[in-house]
Design a binder for these strands. Structure first.
Lengths: 345, 345
DNA sequence: CCCGAGCCTGACAACGTTGTCCAGGTTCTA
DNA sequence: TAGAACCTGGACAACGTTGTCAGGCTCGGG
């Protein structure tokens, strides 16, 4: 009869270990390890016995112990702003696909645009010894990552550059995209063009604002303060900002929306207007082609950004990469109607 | 600010341990542990010295070792179909929020609707010893989870029940929602109503189909095979299916779309039709209210589903829960115009 | 018949942390 | 002032796995 082991697999809440498997199969611990990892040097007969014991006990290797021994976790972390945002879903998914191709799992966390929470998340991931990090920064100082980088944690920043450290970054050409979008409106005859965007302390928002200003300046159009709304994100305030620009003595004839959430709200506001107002938005939005008029946007490819960042991450881990680099991906202007409306003065 | 190139730093790939910290601070190993974990029994002066050493070395506790010792990882796994789908983003986010409230991280993986990949992911998560699992099943046999459940891994299924094992499940009232949606069309005078949905081997698809049939039967309307398209998901084939239903000798006057992706494609097809065709879709879609007509949908609250599932998961871990349960959340019919169009024969 | 080579197998240490337990010192009480 | 209670700090084992290394076996050639 088999001896009753207090730590046997049958006890609720306890899991069988290689030792248990070894005991049951009547072999040594290391032999089980060899079978589990497909290492050579095990007789087919022995392997069969071990496999039988594994199945019978429902053994599953404990990766925590494995990681402790081997030093690599085969997992990477992704810290983004909000997974519920339609921009980040595809991004996360494409990072996951690349990770999967390298046999790694993805842990992700939402910073909710809060620098403290970003740091908390990143450090939690580091404590778990992720092999690499993809970070969409919320804060603007990342010196807290220095020890991690020094320890060899591969790191790629996305969407916004890192603060005060030298690291890879993958981002869209926010400046150029915004400039082109605004220039597109100008080309269609607009001069009084509104801009609604996020706080300029956010890099993307600042760059897009810069693009707006550049396009206006290139066209020799002085910008009125009343045409700009910065740091406004929640629907209610975006709505108010848009309505203000559209009323008053000198109303705008076109609006450039600084991100997808702003665009959606502006579309709602414009739908209520009697006057026709042109609109170009940054970021594509689903169903934009089905609206009347279709929404013209400056699109960035979230999946492409994620893939590029993740591939770079794994090249860091391969040791293929040395110097940090800044990779800027182009945006694409998609004309669907709303950006081609003529000014209605 | 000075930027340091950390990739070329020395001691690449090695991290300080508590032992290193202890040596530098001139104290014992366990004292460092106490400081790191905020345990009592350390003089302020000693604590200061330890903290100094920690900062100087950039020490970060290795959670792998911690997990190995403590047995809990403070992380949960979420296996879903595709994070890029707008239904799953909010779901994942709400699971993450609940996890965060319990001090846990979230690891998620996309199964791409492939049973093998689901199993592979789930087992990888178990090997990492996640404390709990939220699974949106792709396959229909989950007996492979038995050893895990026995070992105490908390598990909640979402959206579809588990196959061949007894486990918690949180899902929408797919049957009732679809029945109500179709009944809504019938109430507006439609009799020839099309149904486009996913493969009936998927639980939600089967339930929604059942709801469609029930509503039709309740109204005494016999269903023609030509009105139903099952197992069709990709846009191109959905388009063809819709076009077929809308042409021919006995065309449908209304369509019930079985999920958000189908709805989007059907909206596109209907926009091209000269005839007005009514539409009700399962799942809400963004901007549905801005289309003309607005899209009437049977909405399920993804965030609520995720929250409910995650809370139940943590109640399992608390030990508050014993018997597995099936929790069905109600759907909501949101009328926006497309479902209230009269039949145009 | 013996020896070396080659193959399987298992004992043991180590990974970095935490729990247990005890030593040594200080303070309080009788 | 002795003794007890208390406090701080450290030595040591254990968590489950993998790398190292050595022992034992078989087999073939000299």
């Amino acid at each position: 009869m088999p001896q009753t082991n207090l730590r046997s697999a049958t006890r609720y809440g306890t899991r069988p270990t290689m030792k248990d498997v070894a005991a049951r199969a009547g072999v040594g611990l290391k032999t089980v390890s060899r079978v589990v990892n497909g290492e050579p040097g095990v007789t087919p007969e022995t392997e069969r016995r071990v496999q039988e014991a594994i199945d019978a006990l429902g053994f599953r290797r404990n990766d925590s112990a494995r990681v402790l021994r081997k030093g690599r976790t085969a997992s990477i972390g992704l810290v983004l702003e909000d997974l519920a945002d339609p921009f980040y879903g595809p991004l996360s998914r494409s990072v996951e696909e690349v990770a999967r191709a390298h046999g790694a799992l993805l842990i992700n966390g939402s910073s909710a645009e809060d620098p403290d929470r970003e740091q908390e998340l990143v450090l939690a991931l580091c404590a778990r010894r992720v092999d690499g990090l993809v970070v969409i920064p919320a804060g603007d100082d990342h010196r807290y990552l220095e020890p991690e980088l020094k320890a060899g944690v591969a790191t790629v920043f996305v969407d916004r550059p890192a603060g005060h450290i030298d690291a890879d970054v993958v981002l869209s050409d926010n400046f150029g995209g915004a400039r082109d979008g605004v220039a597109h409106l100008i080309a269609h005859g607009h001069r009084r063009i509104g801009f609604i965007g996020d706080m300029p302390r956010i890099h993307t928002a600042a760059e897009r604002l810069r693009g707006y200003r550049a396009a206006m300046e290139d066209a020799g159009i002085p910008v009125a303060d009343a045409w700009m709304s910065l740091g406004v994100t929640d629907p209610e305030r975006v709505r108010r900002a848009a309505e203000e620009m559209l009323s008053g003595p000198d109303p705008v004839t076109a609006v450039f929306a600084g991100n997808n959430r702003v665009t959606v709200t502006v579309v709602r506001v414009l739908a209520e207007q009697t006057r026709s107002v042109a609109l170009v938005g940054f970021d594509d939005i689903e169903l934009a082609d089905l609206l009347r008029p279709g929404v013209t946007v400056v699109a960035q490819d979230a999946a492409d950004i994620g893939r590029t960042a993740a591939e770079r991450l794994f090249r860091q881990l391969d040791g293929t990469l040395v110097a940090p680099e800044r990779i800027e991906l182009p945006t694409r202007l998609i004309t669907r109607g709303s950006g081609e409306l003529p000014p209605a003065d």
